[in-house]
Nucleic acid binder design. Structure first.
Length: 827
DNA sequence: CCCCTGCTAATTTTT
DNA sequence: TTAGCAGGGG
């Protein structure tokens, strides 16, 4: 492909308008339904384009149409396009939507995350700088394990260098493209802690190199180093990618920014300066001088108001200073929102406008005001959760599908209370991005087995599996093997083959020999020596082989720990993933499989529209949208989170996070909080978030305001409020208690109607969820419920642990209960 | 070497 | 509250 014919460039980048062919543009249909700004974003041609895309402004649509337009107009071959997203999910979506527009042509494009794009490049070029293409990718857990070992070896704990702190610092430095050496130059080396840190950093990097491994940050940073050290390599990619598009640009860190810069540089531009002390070289020749050497065109899309990853190195300046970085860049502003009602947008605008130092941008819509935002204050997080659950049921009855509702929270730990209530209320839910499948110990073990086969240099993987399942090999033996390997100048893996030379007991020696044999057998299956291709099923079969013959499966089966049953299921799931992978990638090798697995995240859970409510953190929510959104825990110290107070720019980032949450909602938005919140056993008093005050009163309707909960009792809400008389305490909100200041100025809105739900909500959740086992219930049975009293079973639906009883209570009315855990007994 | 117990410490966000 | 770890007994 791509023989002699260069793509025909229509409009030569001469201007934003395609005025030459107003009626016959081959991409005319792509522009249908776009507003003028969106059109401009699709059709503008030039070196650099920044699309400032507010929440819900149709940026994905614009980006995909822009790509389609380039292809349709024959301005680019698919292979010349590099589109970079932040998540695999976003990449998948983009590819799908481009395919819809241009069909199979989309195949040759690189649409991927930063990380997978870099892996592709690194696999190809690894040999250039001391790695092999079989390198392993260390996720943060792997690198933590390694750092932990090094911290111990260096006794760095004494200097306050905990594994976590060390890892964080190294990561930060790598995102700034620093290495141990360059850091040492700028650090205060008279501080012993700094010296130890530098030593740790260097040792860590040595270990990675020795293991033929890159950590997450290295994938980006090392690619940049590669491009800088080998300009002719960089030029290969510069020549190839003529159009670079980056999504979520506000989330890029310095390393990613540099990578984009390297890729879009004029071809051949940095070969000389790097080589020589000459100093007379022209660094960046004006692309206009020589069209063949011009850098790729760059399109970035982003919204600085949605930058929520500064904590891990995202630099908002990358986007706010784009025009300075790329002189002559065109900026298109997308402000029309196609997602939310005006009330929701007004609230979002009001909140975000409190951030100073931002370019003004106001989202608007033409769909109308919509419902008011609903606020609710619970006495406890359980009370709050009950409100959410009840409201979800109301919406459900009104015809809103569960899959169109979402509940957000700031910290993962908040999901617990919600889950408890949801289970008891039989609200189907799904936690997005909780404990991740690929971080489970058994999955990591299984993958370590695969790594041990694919990359024998990876000692970390070997250390992980050598005593899993238990083989009687402990620290002493491991160190014996490691020392032997060093002495013989062979890898840890190869040392296993000489088990008889290790000088260990016969039992242990046999165990080592067995493991060695299993690994060798799997290796023969998955990596045929003669160079022929392994069959597509090799990975799945090899994995099975490893798990069976190593005794891993047997050990789990023999265990009486109930959790181990689930572990077997997880492993079966992993084998299924491997099969699926083989189906999708007939040519896929064990390396490809490991790469994919290392780079997927929970965010890639396709949102399984199987009718459940989605629960997730505010961070996870970015990029998603739902008809109804509940933002919970809108309290001081939660959002804004307490830790953010000390970080520069922290409170502003928290506000953006809240803004992101608000703007996920299409039609209905709920903001809820609790007056008390139990964290690690202790009950603490929570205060309404300052962000609530930033929402204009007329947009927010309180079902139960903080004043309702607090005006009479300050902190001891529960007991007092349980029997509150309707209408009392009105206007007297200044009366004592630490909460009064909120009662006064934060909650001027009308109180909830008298006779409301206080008794219903208060204090009804016992500390522990119980287990009724296989309690048999059928229609007609009478039961007693701890809270609801007696009632009659109307029907039983569902199966196994998810059996639900539909009960009509004598006083409390109809309820749905999960039989397994509801506090009920049969009468 | 393995397992258990009792203690401590840590609770933000994650490609 | 709980997860994870160190230290001691088997």
């Amino acid at each position: 492909m791509g023989t002699s014919s260069r793509p025909i460039v229509l409009d030569g980048g001469a201007g934003p308008r395609a005025h030459a062919y107003p009626d016959v543009r081959p991409d005319e249909d792509l522009l249908a339904g776009l507003n003028p700004q969106q059109r401009e974003a699709v059709t503008y041609r030039g070196q650099a384009l920044l699309i400032v895309a507010g929440a819900g402004s149709g940026k994905t649509s614009v980006l995909t149409r822009r790509i389609a337009s380039l292809l349709r107009n024959r301005e680019a071959w698919p292979s010349q396009i590099l589109a970079i997203t932040f998540t695999n999910k976003a990449a998948g979506e983009m590819r799908e939507r481009v395919e819809q527009l241009v069909g199979d042509t989309a195949r040759g494009m690189w649409i991927s995350t930063f990380h997978s794009a870099c892996v592709r490049i690194l696999r190809r070029e690894a040999e250039q700088f001391g790695f092999t293409k079989a390198f392993t990718i260390y996720d943060s857990g792997d690198s933590r394990a390694l750092i932990k070992r090094l911290v111990k070896e260096h006794e760095a704990d004494a200097y306050g260098l905990t594994p976590a702190a060390t890892q964080g610092k190294i990561s930060k430095l790598k995102n700034e493209l620093a290495d141990a050496e360059s850091y040492a130059r700028s650090a205060n080396m008279s501080d012993p802690a700094e010296r130890v840190f530098v030593e740790l950093f260097a040792a860590y990097q040595r270990e990675l190199q020795r293991a033929n491994a890159f950590d997450f940050d290295d994938l980006i940073a090392q690619t940049v180093f590669l491009f800088r050290a080998f300009p002719q390599v960089a030029d290969v990619y510069r020549r190839r990618f003529r159009h670079v598009l980056v999504d979520e640009y506000q989330d890029t860190n310095h390393a990613q920014y540099s990578l984009i810069h390297e890729l879009t540089r004029p071809i051949g531009s940095d070969a000389a300066p790097l080589a020589g002390a000459g100093g007379m070289m022209i660094f960046e020749p004006d692309p206009a001088d020589d069209p063949d050497k011009a850098g790729a065109s760059l399109t970035v899309v982003g919204d600085s108001d949605q930058s929520i990853y500064a904590f891990r190195g995202a630099d908002i300046r990358n986007i706010s200073e784009f025009e300075r970085d790329f002189p002559g860049a065109k900026v298109v502003l997308l402000e029309q929102n196609y997602r939310s009602t005006q009330n929701i947008l007004s609230a979002a605008n009001a909140v975000i406008s409190h951030n100073f130092d931002r370019k003004d941008k106001r989202l608007w819509t033409d769909v109308g005001e919509g419902e008011r935002i609903i606020g609710f204050t619970g006495y406890s997080q359980h009370d709050e959760a009950q409100f959410v659950a009840d409201e979800i049921e109301v919406l459900r009855k009104a015809g809103v599908d569960y899959s169109q509702m979402a509940v957000f929270y700031r910290t993962n730990s908040q999901s617990r209370a919600l889950e408890e209530i949801f289970i008891r209320s039989a609200v189907p839910y799904k936690i997005m991005g909780g404990t991740k499948f690929y971080e489970r110990a058994e999955i990591k073990d299984a993958l370590a087995y695969l790594v041990a086969v694919a990359n024998p240099a990876d000692e970390m993987a070997m250390r992980r599996i050598i005593n899993r399942p238990r083989r009687g090999i402990g620290d002493v033996t491991i160190e014996t093997i490691a020392r032997y390997a060093v002495d013989q100048q062979i890898t840890f893996r190869d040392a296993l083959a000489n088990s008889s030379a290790l000088g260990v007991g016969p039992k242990i020696q046999a165990a080592i020999a067995h493991l060695d044999a299993v690994l060798a057998e799997a290796s023969a299956l998955m990596l045929p020596p003669s160079g022929e291709l392994a069959p597509p099923t090799a990975v799945a079969e090899g994995l099975q082989l490893l798990l069976s013959k190593s005794g891993y499966y047997d050990a789990l089966r023999a265990s009486k720990d109930a959790q181990d049953e689930a572990r077997i299921e997880n492993l079966d799931e992993l084998v299924a993933v491997a099969r699926e992978f083989a189906r999708n990638n007939p040519e896929g090798t064990i390396l490809d499989f490991l790469t994919e697995v290392a780079l997927v995240s929970d965010a890639d859970d396709l949102e399984d529209a199987s009718g459940s409510v989605s629960l997730m953190t505010l961070h996870t929510a970015k990029g998603l949208e739902y008809d109804a959104v509940f933002v919970t825990g809108v309290e001081e110290d939660l959002i804004p989170h307490r830790i953010s107070a000390n970080e520069p720019g922290g409170p502003q980032e928290e506000r953006r996070l809240f803004y992101v949450g608000i703007t996920r909602a299409r039609k209905r938005l709920y903001l809820s909080l609790a007056m008390t919140r139990a964290q690690f056993g202790e009950v603490t008093v929570a205060m309404p978030s300052r962000f609530l005050q930033e929402i204009p009163n007329e947009l927010l309707h309180w079902r139960q305001s903080p004043g309702d909960v607090n005006s009479r009792g300050g902190t001891q809400s529960r007991a007092l409020n349980a029997r509150r008389q309707s209408g009392s305490g009105f206007g007297g909100s200044g009366s004592g208690g630490s909460g009064s200041r909120y009662g006064d100025d934060l909650v001027p809105l009308p109180r909830r109607a008298p006779g409301g739900s206080i008794d219903r909500f208060a204090n009804k959740i016992p500390a522990k969820v119980r287990d009724n086992g296989d309690l048999e219930l059928g229609p007609g049975d009478r039961i007693r419920h701890d809270d609801f009293g007696e009632g009659k079973v109307d029907a039983v639906t569902g199966e196994g642990a998810k059996r639900v009883a539909h009960v009509r209570f004598d006083t409390a009315g109809p309820k749905k209960l999960l039989i397994k855990i509801a506090p009920i007994e049969k009468l």
